[in-house]
Amino acid sequence: MNKITLHRGKDKAAWQLHPWVFSGAIAHIAGKPANGTVVEVFNAEDEFIAFGVYNAFSRVAVRLLEWNPEREINDSWWRDRIQRSIGLRKHLLTDSNTTVRLIFAEADFLPGLIVDKYGDFMSVQVHAAGAELVKEVIIDELVAQLNPKGIYERSDLKSREHEGLADANGLRYGQMPPEFVEVIENGIRYQINIVEGQKSGFYCDQRDNRWLTAQYAKGKRVLDCFCYSGGFTLNAFQQGAAEVVSVDSSALAIDTLKRNVVANGFNSESHQAVQSDVNKYLRQLGEAGEKFDLIVLDPPKYAPSRSALEKASRAYKDLNRRGLMLLESGGLLATFSCSGAMDIDTFKQVIAWAALDAGREIQFIRQFTQPEDHPIRASFPEGEYLKGLLVRVV
């Protein structure tokens, strides 16, 4: 087996079970490992640390898999890890919840692999060379565990470029998913598009937060921004919202949202779906003097890396300033960031600046995070990406 030796003093994170070894930490490579193949990692004193998969293209040169020197990294190892991940989530699959994230990459000791279950179908994303080399084993084990009607791959992530991998989309097992697959979350029916929808088809990471936010929606006028297929909108209606305005720039998202409102029997006369740039629409609402009781801001990732954090902070501040200006005293803002580079304390500070610029006095009354099928591994804090705040204007 190929052997990688780390520079003296660059082994601390690896000993502490962090799964990433950056290229700058490598002192010597014995052999010529192909991208995605298993390597042994040692410290400068020639002590074994862990097994990992190597990739010369990536800044993360080795993704560590196993710290027990007695455990061989073979097909059985991958199958065992998949079985464990699925076993920890089976209790989440009920009649009122038929969608769940089955595998969450590094958090489940399976770097580069994301698997979501949508009713009778699965969506798979592979964004690391190690998982790419055993993709057939992964698909076979998913079939053995849950026997889905079909498995569709959506490996068109930017991160594949950094791994030296081309995009890979297409059917990997069974039946092609229909244009709209029905799933149930929090007892609400969703028509989702696995093949053409955003990410892997649906954002199940907001499951808990949708329900929690909706507890404040009864009898209220709600504005759901970056609504996608309507998660916050539908939960608000389920909890008795008087009126909801939903905004997204995607025509597919708005069309899917409308289907979901009808599928759940909600009053479409109390719903307005708007295809628009959210910042532009918020500006128009402000100019028109519109006010809301509850506003949801769930934007895409503004800070893909720490180098983008300053620019992203300005974007988050301006977005939230516009939202806060549409609230009267007592109004609520549920605001989110899915940027891993922005921690909760920084996010609070950005919202505080936004309130200052909007001339609003605010209170933080609840914090949101990602649900249990998106666990945060203690040795991999980078897996904590979703955070949110429920803000009250006073």
Rank of each mutant, 00 (worst) to 15 (best):
H7A: 00
G9F: 01
D11R: 06
A13Q: 12
W15S: 00
H18R: 08
G31T: 08
P33K: 03
G36I: 11
N43A: 03
A44H: 11
D46Y: 01
F51S: 02
Y54F: 11
A56Q: 15
F57A: 07
R59G: 12
R59P: 09
V62N: 05
V62H: 04
N68V: 02
E72L: 14
D80K: 00
G87F: 10
G87D: 15
R89Q: 12
R89G: 12
K90D: 11
H91Q: 01
L93K: 03
T99R: 08
L102E: 15
L113Y: 03
Y118C: 08
H127G: 08
G130D: 15
K135T: 15
E136G: 04
A144P: 00
N147K: 14
Y152T: 08
E163Q: 07
G164E: 04
D167R: 00
D167P: 05
N169V: 05
L171H: 04
R172I: 13
G174N: 06
P177W: 12
P177E: 12
P178F: 13
N186P: 14
I188C: 08
K199P: 09
S200A: 12
G201L: 09
Q206W: 14
D208L: 11
Q215V: 06
Q215K: 15
Y216P: 09
A217K: 06
K220W: 04
R221P: 07
C227N: 00
S229I: 15
F232A: 01
A236M: 11
F237L: 05
A242I: 14
E243K: 12
V244P: 06
S249A: 13
S250Y: 01
L252S: 15
A253L: 13
I254T: 05
L257C: 08
L257F: 13
S270D: 00
Q272R: 14
Q272S: 04
Y281W: 07
R283W: 02
A288D: 09
D293V: 04
I295C: 11
L297C: 09
D298L: 00
P299Q: 10
A303M: 04
P304A: 05
P304T: 07
S305F: 02
S305C: 04
A308L: 11
E310H: 07
R314A: 10
D318G: 07
G323H: 12
L332A: 02
A334M: 11
S337P: 11
C338K: 12
S339G: 10
D343R: 09
K348V: 09
W353K: 07
A355D: 03
G359F: 08
D373P: 10
Y385R: 03
Y385A: 04
G388I: 02
R392M: 14
